[in-house]
Amino acid sequence: METKSLIIDIATTLFQQKGFIGVGINEILNACNLSRASFYHHFPKGKEEITKISYNHRSHTGNGLGGTITGCLTAQSVK
Rank of each mutant, 00 (worst) to 15 (best):
residue 35 S to R: 07
residue 39 F to K: 00
residue 34 L to Y: 15
residue 48 E to P: 08
residue 55 Y to A: 02
residue 37 A to Y: 13
residue 67 G to A: 11
residue 70 T to W: 06
residue 41 H to R: 13
residue 52 K to S: 09
residue 54 S to Q: 05
residue 26 N to P: 04
residue 63 N to L: 10
residue 45 K to C: 06
residue 39 F to A: 01
residue 67 G to L: 10
residue 46 G to Y: 13
residue 43 F to P: 00
residue 61 T to W: 02
residue 40 Y to P: 00
residue 57 H to R: 12
residue 62 G to K: 12
residue 66 G to C: 02
residue 45 K to W: 03
residue 70 T to H: 08
residue 52 K to W: 14
residue 58 R to I: 11
residue 75 A to S: 15
residue 41 H to S: 10
residue 70 T to D: 13
residue 56 N to G: 08
residue 41 H to I: 10
residue 63 N to Y: 05
residue 29 L to P: 02
residue 43 F to K: 00
residue 27 E to H: 04
residue 51 T to S: 14
residue 28 I to G: 02
residue 65 L to S: 08
residue 38 S to D: 03
residue 27 E to G: 02
residue 65 L to A: 07
residue 37 A to T: 11
residue 38 S to Q: 00
residue 29 L to Y: 09
residue 29 L to G: 04
residue 34 L to H: 15
residue 55 Y to W: 05
residue 38 S to H: 01
residue 45 K to L: 08
residue 31 A to Y: 02
residue 45 K to R: 10
residue 72 C to F: 10
residue 31 A to L: 06
residue 49 E to V: 05
residue 46 G to T: 12
residue 53 I to P: 00
residue 67 G to R: 01
residue 70 T to Y: 07
residue 42 H to Q: 13
residue 50 I to M: 09
residue 45 K to T: 04
residue 50 I to A: 07
residue 30 N to V: 04
residue 70 T to K: 04
residue 46 G to K: 12
residue 51 T to F: 03
residue 52 K to C: 10
residue 29 L to A: 06
residue 66 G to A: 01
residue 29 L to R: 06
residue 36 R to I: 02
residue 45 K to H: 04
residue 60 H to Q: 07
residue 73 L to G: 07
residue 67 G to Y: 08
residue 73 L to R: 11
residue 29 L to E: 07
residue 29 L to I: 06
residue 49 E to W: 06
residue 26 N to L: 03
residue 32 C to S: 14
residue 31 A to V: 01
residue 37 A to N: 11
residue 64 G to A: 15
residue 55 Y to L: 08
residue 70 T to G: 00
residue 66 G to T: 08
residue 69 I to P: 00
residue 41 H to N: 10
residue 67 G to T: 14
residue 42 H to L: 13
residue 73 L to A: 12
residue 61 T to C: 06
residue 69 I to L: 04
residue 57 H to T: 05
residue 68 T to I: 01
residue 74 T to F: 15
residue 70 T to N: 11
residue 66 G to S: 03
residue 46 G to R: 11
residue 48 E to R: 12
residue 53 I to E: 00
residue 36 R to G: 00
residue 41 H to E: 10
residue 76 Q to K: 11
residue 39 F to P: 00
residue 65 L to F: 02
residue 26 N to K: 08
residue 76 Q to S: 09
residue 34 L to V: 11
residue 61 T to P: 03
residue 28 I to Y: 03
residue 66 G to H: 05
residue 38 S to W: 00
residue 65 L to Y: 07
residue 47 K to C: 01
residue 62 G to H: 12
residue 76 Q to A: 08
residue 39 F to G: 01
residue 30 N to F: 01
residue 42 H to N: 14
residue 48 E to K: 12
residue 70 T to C: 04
residue 45 K to E: 06
residue 58 R to D: 09
residue 33 N to F: 14
residue 71 G to H: 03
residue 60 H to T: 05
residue 74 T to D: 15
residue 54 S to A: 11
residue 32 C to V: 15
residue 71 G to W: 01
residue 54 S to M: 09
residue 42 H to T: 14
residue 37 A to Q: 13
residue 73 L to M: 12
residue 56 N to Y: 11
residue 32 C to G: 14
residue 31 A to K: 05
residue 60 H to R: 03
